[in-house]
């Protein structure tokens, strides 16, 4: 059961048109709230299950690649799906379709609603919302901490992730790299047949 992630050149069915690729991703980008994971679930439903533009098994292997590289998962999976269907130009269409809706929505919010932000009630509203984000961060930390921090080695790797930003005040990205290296060295190696790409999505 090995599904090639490379673009399928000997595709026997009609290639999907670039406009329908763009339009499908555009609608998903416009109507899906709740971040990358939610978006990729909708993409799976629309592209793999409903339209059958890609095989579901292929979607799943692309998905595991999309979660092992950095960056927004929705953009990553859009790139891979677009490339899979129509090579590089398909990838461009899929990525543009995914990010253009939020690009325009944010421009409208920033350009039209920013002037109203001096209203004290609006400021108070945003202050309340900002507090909720602390809870959301803490909750995400709690959920992943429960499964990822089970012994001292894992706690040490976790601390290594915090130290560069927390103690030295340098860029947090070094924390991620330090944790990756320390984890590689300290944590038990996984079996080579680890097929499931269950990267945590915060």
């Amino acid at each position: 059961m090995s599904h090639s992630i490379r673009q399928n050149e000997e595709n026997d069915s009609m290639p999907v048109s670039l406009i329908s690729i763009f339009w499908t991703f555009f609608r998903i980008g416009l109507f899906t709230l709740g971040g990358g994971m939610a978006m990729s679930l909708v993409m799976r439903h629309e592209l793999a299950i409903k339209r059958r533009w890609v095989k579901d098994a292929d979607f799943m292997s692309l998905m595991s690649l999309a979660t092992v590289v950095p960056g927004a998962i929705a953009v990553n999976i859009a790139y891979l799906l677009g490339r899979r269907m129509r090579s590089h130009i398909g990838a461009v269409m899929a990525v543009l379709g995914t990010i253009l809706p939020s690009f325009f929505v944010i421009l409208i919010v920033a350009g039209v609603f920013l002037p109203f932000i001096s209203n004290p009630k609006v400021t108070a509203f945003f202050r309340g919302c900002a507090i909720a984000i602390v809870s959301q961060l803490a909750f995400t930390g709690f959920i992943f901490g429960r499964t990822l921090l089970r012994n001292w080695k894992q706690c040490a790797v976790c601390a290594a992730g915090m130290i560069p930003a927390c103690v030295f005040g340098i860029h947090p990205i070094f924390g991620i790299i330090t944790a990756g290296v320390l984890g590689y060295w300290l944590l038990p190696k996984k079996k080579p047949e680890g097929a499931g790409g269950n990267a945590p999505t915060a």
Binding site: C158, G161, G175, A179, G180, K190
Partner: peptide, 26 residues
């Protein structure tokens, strides 16, 4: 090149950053 072994550490490092953010953002 076993990417997944490197990934486990990265996942935990990301968790570390989230915990750090609870403090710094909070």
């Amino acid at each position: 090149w076993n990417l997944r072994d490197f990934m486990q550490g990265i996942k935990i490092g990301v968790l570390g950053l989230i915990l750090f953010a609870v403090w710094s953002y909070g």
